[in-house]
Design a protein around this nucleic acid. Structure first.
Lengths: 342, 342
DNA sequence: TTGAAAGCGCTAACAT
DNA sequence: ATGTTAGCGCTTTCAA
């Protein structure tokens, strides 16, 4: 065991190298106007002492707040968010910035606390998958000069950049695909109804459903089930829909967790309903599940790039960046009513 | 648009509140010995000015290096690592610490750079899924008084804490399970052969295989395939094994990605071999895949807790913490040779 | 090329 | 209960 000696400072290095503080600073930072011999001496002293520049002192002096970018998401363990984080990180890497992450578990209160902590820790910019319960804290971060970029879910009542998916078109695509396969009763299982992503996907669903010739008096929302945020809840919703007296012949599941929940509900069923899910996922190909696919890593990268550009004087709050989605057909959406696709 | 005014300092707040700098500091930090009226005045001034304590200056003054813990993993988008990260974050949350993450993509060189960056940024402690290509940088971090905790893969040639899984027992369990179902030719598909986790899982496999009565001259490694780090590679390995003149009747896949790769290889096969995978994964139940399961979130929490305890004067470098694993039977491992479990 | 002094924003002693 | 002074470790004038 080495004794955790209190770390050497530049003064120590300067002393040991027999030069002034400033010279040591210049040498350590690779600034010009230092004789090669001096540079060597300082380097050696630094090495001997295990010297490490105190970046906090350095940043403080230079008036820089930090080298961190904050990412606030719902749940890091959700592959969608972790892919997003990967995209953000990849983009930051080239700029020598680092990524601070945290999960809200979709609690507005936690989001508030986390954002405040990040602001207190002087993050340079904030990338947020907002719970949308309130954005006072984000607004105040913005007012303090910290760029805020919304990702996945757009900015609401707030002039800020957003990077989002074409949710409505994606959902419409999915439903039209099911309709083309002959389905007329199509269930919808969705996440928290307060989320803009949910609302847009529901709108896309309704677009397609309402374009269908309907019997008068029929409610287009008859087969819509909302506010299921985890797989277990979604599974229950799927079972409930399938136990209706006239059950749907197809299901649209509005995100990866909901899709997985529905798939678990199908176990042991004599015939599984057709299915199209929003978000691609591991093993979707093995299971033959048709999905509305997109690129969460790219979404993270884009958001990070915008945050960085805003740091470099880009005007914040432009039009939302809308990333495309596409249908990947694998069988589960092509099955005609009553036909098992598994 | 608000003009990004240069942020207010404590001096500004003190001035506006008509008190001294120190009083403002006391009030802002919620220290005792401040009259309630004064506290109010200061709070109001701070609010008016949009004041935010500069944590860098504060930490510098207090001689604290930072409030960050660094986590270095292979790939944040891998659900195993992101669950780990979630566990770490959950543990830090209660301590007011924040999590800085980054991915090495299993490159030793990137690991070196990342660790150096984190050290430069004064992280309090480092939690590392090491590539194990070299640990000079980690050692030097340790020598600078930064606790290093190895997770998933144990410390090598370095006195440090580790939190790992009971890999060998887990693999043995899996193979014995397949043997009990009647399998005698069992393939092994593994990750990078340099990784300790790989070696231990392979050892567990060999333990069980070698306990079998063998024909003389038979190589227990005949059906072992290594160095496949992604699903695509693992798929190829599975196909290769299955195309042998006497193919294995069962496969052991040594981690989640490899398992997924093997499963994609089974598509379209008339009969899938039996399969047991290391690591549980989403949809394993839907697919009926028997796995060696464990708790990556808990692993992250444990590692974080050890890091925090070390910060509080715990002796570093004790015995590795070995977390248990267990077999979850879902059908794919119970199938007798030649019987399709899908 | 090198150095001395000032001060980033804050808190810890030590007054008062 | 409040204020004064010094200084964390560093970089930045400005001189030498």
């Amino acid at each position: 065991m080495t004794i955790p000696k209190s770390p050497a400072t530049l003064v120590d290095v300067a002393e040991r190298a027999g030069v002034s503080l400033k010279t040591a600073s210049r040498a350590v930072n690779g600034e010009p106007h230092v004789a090669e011999a001096t540079r060597q001496k300082v380097a050696k002293a630094a090495l001997d002492l295990g010297f490490q520049l105190n970046s906090m002192a350095s940043l403080l002096k230079r008036g820089i707040r930090s080298n961190f970018i904050g990412l606030v998401t719902g749940d890091l363990a959700n592959p969608f968010y972790s892919s997003l984080a990967k995209g953000v990180e990849r983009e930051l890497r080239s700029q020598g910035l680092q990524l601070v992450v945290s999960s809200t578990d979709e609690s507005g209160e936690r989001e508030r606390v986390l954002v405040e902590e990040m602001v207190a820790r002087q993050v340079r910019a904030l990338i947020v998958v907002s719970t949308h319960e309130s954005n006072d804290t984000l607004r105040s971060a913005q007012e303090r000069g910290i760029p805020v970029v919304f990702v996945d879910r757009p900015a609401l009542d707030l002039t800020a950049d957003s990077v989002v998916l074409d949710n409505r078109a994606g959902a419409r695509l999915a439903i039209e695909h099911l309709i083309a396969a002959g389905h007329r009763r199509i269930g919808f299982i969705g996440d928290f109804s307060r989320l803009p992503t949910h609302q847009q996907r529901l709108d896309g669903y309704l677009d397609a459903i309402e374009a269908l010739p309907t019997k008068s008096g029929q409610d287009p929302r008859e087969l819509v089930r909302e506010d299921f945020h985890d797989a277990a809840g979604a599974r229950g919703a799927a079972l409930e829909l399938l136990s209706l007296s006239t059950p749907p012949t197809a299901l649209f599941t509005s995100n990866n967790r909901v899709t997985i929940g529905a798939l678990t509900a199908f176990r042991g069923l004599p015939v599984a309903p057709a299915l199209v899910g929003f978000d691609d996922f591991d093993l979707s190909d093995v299971l033959g599940v048709t999905v509305v696919s997109h690129d969460p890593v790219e979404m993270g990268s884009r958001a990070a790039r915008i945050a960085l550009e805003t740091l470099e004087s880009r005007q914040p709050g432009g039009e939302p960046v809308v990333l495309p989605v596409r249908l990947i057909e694998r069988g589960s959406g092509e099955a005609a009513p009553g036909v098992d696709w598994r």
